[in-house]
């Protein structure tokens, strides 16, 4: 079976997107992302006034890897994880909270958002996101990922890589 990165579909996904928007409005942060621990972006929102973000794939991969490295550091000391992951420069900062054991909530902010507010509203959003995830009883939609998926994806691989021979 294909593993859903998080049990987040349809209406629940829309509610979580709404919570990310609230988080941005209340904290005045730039971007809010829900990513899985492997570094894939699940959902993201950008404040209307915020500049275009850097590559979200790069951002999510680095945050997820950094987070697992931090966890490994904590575990060297017999702790499960560090309580807080904040990175701050003069221009920009990131704040990360765990969402269960599968995902991370990431808030990216700049000088216009005080860290205290970012933390407060990220924690609040986290609680609400977790509540949505717990409430969600919606069955996972059925994805058409049987044989036809592999055949179509295989054809696209051929297209991308040609016959696989290198010149």
């Amino acid at each position: 079976m294909l593993e859903p990165s998080l049990d987040l579909y349809g209406e629940a996904a829309e509610r979580v997107e709404g919570l990310l928007v609230d988080l941005l409005t209340q904290s005045r942060a730039r971007y809010a992302l829900l990513i899985d621990r492997q570094g894939f972006v699940i959902l993201h929102r950008r404040a209307a006034w915020a500049p275009k973000p850097p590559s979200l794939d790069s951002l999510a991969t680095l945050i997820a890897s950094n987070h697992s490295a931090n966890e490994a550091i904590a575990q060297l000391f017999g702790e499960a994880s560090f309580r807080e992951t904040v990175q701050q420069s003069d221009g920009v900062g990131t704040y990360v909270e765990s969402v269960g054991d599968k995902a991370l909530l990431v808030t990216v902010f700049d000088a216009s958002a005080p860290l205290g507010k970012v933390k407060l509203f990220t924690k609040r959003a986290l609680e609400r996101i977790q509540a949505v995830l717990e409430e969600t009883r919606e069955a996972a939609p059925v994805a058409d990922i049987g044989g036809s998926f592999s055949v179509h994806a295989g054809a696209l691989l051929d297209e991308l890589f040609g016959d696989g021979k290198t010149p």
Partner: peptide, 15 residues
């Protein structure tokens, strides 16, 4: 393991 993201309608593989 491959992950499916219904919210963004993505399937991701890690090599």
């Amino acid at each position: 393991m491959s992950t499916i993201n219904f919210a963004a309608r993505e399937i991701n593989f890690k090599l």
